[in-house]
């Protein structure tokens, strides 16, 4: 079997492992159970959830976003870069030849994502309060993702570097379920809980004023 085939298989198998491990992780959180809620709802949990994924994601809705716009946008661009890299990885695996313009966009997003990631990592290193709340996992996750973005950028120029891209992808996929990148699942989980909590209590979405 050629190296490229081996790596391709490795990516697929590690992706399957990653999905299964994340599913088990989520299933295990469900195993903690939850007693029924007896208090009478004032607002709507459903509306709260819609808010959490809609209006509630807008920068002016959250102080943590509007007071930290550079970090907020760096975070968005970082994730946009990651999604672009994942998309490129999938197309490479499926042997899909992308048009030049698509490759250009992917490259651009990955470059901006990488720069944003470096910025976020620098912030984590530089600010005492960020160092104080960080653990080794935070640095590993950031470096691994940064590496994926870097090899993706290079692979868009030199097709031969798809090997490196796939090798990094395998490492990353194996790491996801054990480290903080598991938030790719728990983000949605947490936002649903957030929306349901504040929605049920009638705090969010903002109640209308009478005058």
């Amino acid at each position: 079997m050629s190296l490229v085939l081996l790596l391709r298989l490795g990516v697929v198998l590690s992706a399957i492992y990653c999905l299964i491990a994340l599913t088990i992780l989520v299933a295990r959180t469900f195993s903690f159970g939850r007693p029924p809620r007896y208090s009478k709802a004032q607002g709507s949990a459903a509306k709260g959830i819609v808010y959490a994924f809609g209006q509630g994601m807008l920068p002016w809705e959250k102080e943590s976003a509007f007071k930290h716009l550079p970090t907020f946008f760096a975070g968005i661009l970082y994730h946009a870069g990651i999604f672009a890299a994942v998309f490129f990885l999938i197309t490479t695996l499926l042997l899909i030849r992308l048009p030049d313009i698509a490759i250009l966009i992917i490259r651009l997003l990955a470059v901006i994502g990488l720069l944003s990631g470096i910025g976020l990592l620098a912030k984590r290193f530089a600010l005492p309060y960020m160092r104080f709340i960080s653990c080794i996992d935070d640095y590993i996750a950031n470096i691994l993702v940064g590496l994926l973005l870097l090899v993706t950028i290079l692979a868009t120029y030199y097709y031969v570097l798809q090997f490196a891209m796939m090798a990094v992808a395998i490492t990353l996929l194996l790491y996801i379920p054990v480290g903080k990148i598991r938030h790719c699942v728990f983000f949605f989980y947490s936002r649903i809980l957030f929306g349901a909590f504040f929605g049920r209590r009638g705090t969010l979405p903002h109640p209308s004023t009478e005058d």
Binding site: H183, Y189, L193
Partner: peptide, 22 residues
Amino acid sequence: KIEFGDAAQLNSCVHCGLCADT
């Protein structure tokens, strides 16, 4: 005392630090 929502949220923090000055 941990309910499933707690377990999920205890797995969630990304240490972005944006809650600091809230």
